[in-house]
Amino acid sequence: MGRIAVTILLILSPLLSTDINIYEQNCVKCHENMPVSLDKFFFNYLLKYSSERRVKQALRNYLKHPRRKASLATEELVSRYGLMPKTDLSDEDLRKAIDTYWDKYKVFGKIE
C-alpha cells in the first residue's frame, strides 16, 4: 500500500510541479514587481464573487478578455501599470494556473 502511494506521488509530482510552474511563470513573475500583491487581488475577487466556482469563472473571463470595467484593480494601479494583456495560455493551462492560485490563497481550512 505504502509502495503504491509513493509510486503515485512520484508519477504525480512532476505534473503538480508543472501546474505550479505555469502559475509561477505566467502570474507571479509579473505581479511580484507590482506594489499590490496577488493575495490582495484574490481577496478582492473573494469579496465580489464569493464562491470558488464564481471566483474561478470571473478570473477566467477576465484573463481571456481583460476590460477596464471588469478589473478589480484601483484606478491608480491601472493608470500606472495598465490593464493586463490578454492571456496567451491555452484553456487547460489557464485552468491549471487559476486552480493553483485558488489553492494558494483560499480561506477553506485556514480559519481557526
Binding site: 473573494l46 469579496l47 465580489k48 464569493s50 480559519i111
Partner: peptide
C-alpha cells in the same frame, strides 16, 4: 452585500 472571506 460584500462577501468578506467569500461569505454570502
Amino acid at each position: 452585500d460584500s462577501y468578506y472571506l467569500g461569505t454570502k
